[in-house]
């Protein structure tokens, strides 16, 4: 069988004496969506940043479509990055640019170098896909609510139609209804693009809705990995504790 689209093989990452990733092994098949669940500070965001090359892993291997990407430089790295889209935990909108320029950013920069008029039309279309009207096109991101910012971030991530998209806690801090709206948007957008996705979440409802597969990370290692519909009969003490939100169990909370 061919190797999965995204493969992390024994990835380690430390910050000083803090060993955050301790041998992460996980794979995502092409066009499939993986949800990574796990407690705060277990290294979920760090894992995504290692794949994107925003952080340099200490050891291990990360392959996209069979190609090793750790240590890629220059044009090879640019070409690799152009295949990714990312929704950041805090949306990370550029506050020096208005909403449509944020959404169109990936289209007007890099390889594509689209003209403003053409990019604007696409941006308005992508905004409509995430339920934002054209009247917001010239708004300043700082004036938007948290849920709107997430949606702008989502539109920005999908606008260049990347083949791989990462969502870092897309529903955290949103009310349940807005959370569900975002979940549906993610499912819609990724189906339409046929993209391979990784979603980080604490929110089990969100994980069940978005994901084909779920992986649970604890202390820098994947402790369970399986199809989303088997999460309730995992027979895994970590997973059981997490999805039921119990204090007792193998997961220790450092207070």
């Amino acid at each position: 069988m061919a190797e999965p689209h995204i493969v992390l093989d024994n990835v380690h990452k430390s910050f000083g004496s803090k060993h955050v990733l301790r041998g992460v092994n996980v794979g995502v098949g092409k066009g499939r969506s993986l949800a990574i669940i796990g407690g705060s500070g277990t290294g979920k965001s760090v894992t995504l940043k290692c794949i994107l090359g925003l952080l340099q892993p200490d050891s291990g291997s990360i392959r996209i479509g069979g190609e090793e990407i750790i240590g890629l430089k220059g044009e090879a790295r640019d070409r690799m990055l152009a295949r990714f889209g990312m929704l950041f935990q805090g949306a990370a909108l550029f506050d020096s640019l208005n909403v449509w320029r944020n959404v169109a950013f990936g289209l007007m920069q890099g390889e594509r170098k689209m003209k403003a008029r053409e990019a604007n039309a696409i941006a308005i279309d992508k905004m409509a896909q995430v339920g934002l009207g054209p009247e917001l096109a010239n708004a300043n991101p700082a004036d938007l609510s948290g849920g709107m910012r997430k949606r702008v971030g989502l539109a920005r991530a999908i606008a260049p139609e990347p083949e791989i998209i990462f969502f870092d806690e897309p529903t955290t801090g949103l009310d349940p209804i807005m959370g569900d709206v975002i979940n549906n948007l993610i499912v819609d957008c990724t189906r339409r693009l046929g993209a391979t996705t990784i979603t980080i979440t604490h929110d089990m409802a969100s994980a069940r809705k978005i994901a084909d597969d779920i992986a649970m990370i604890y202390k820098g290692k994947i402790v369970w990995h399986g199809p989303a519909n088997e999460i309730d009969c995992s027979n895994n003490a970590y997973v059981e504790q997490f999805i039921h939100g119990r204090e007792e169990g193998p997961i220790q909370v450092d207070l």
């Binding site: 994107l52 925003l54 889209g85 550029f94 506050d95 920005r156």
Partner: peptide, 25 residues
């Protein structure tokens, strides 16, 4: 102050993921 805010709000990381080198931009 401007670049520091962009750093801590991950805007600089976001630039990189949108195929834009922060050093050049």
């Amino acid at each position: 102050a401007e670049l520091g805010t962009m750093r801590v709000t991950e805007q600089i990381d976001a630039l990189t993921t949108l195929s834009t080198n922060p050093f050049k931009y």
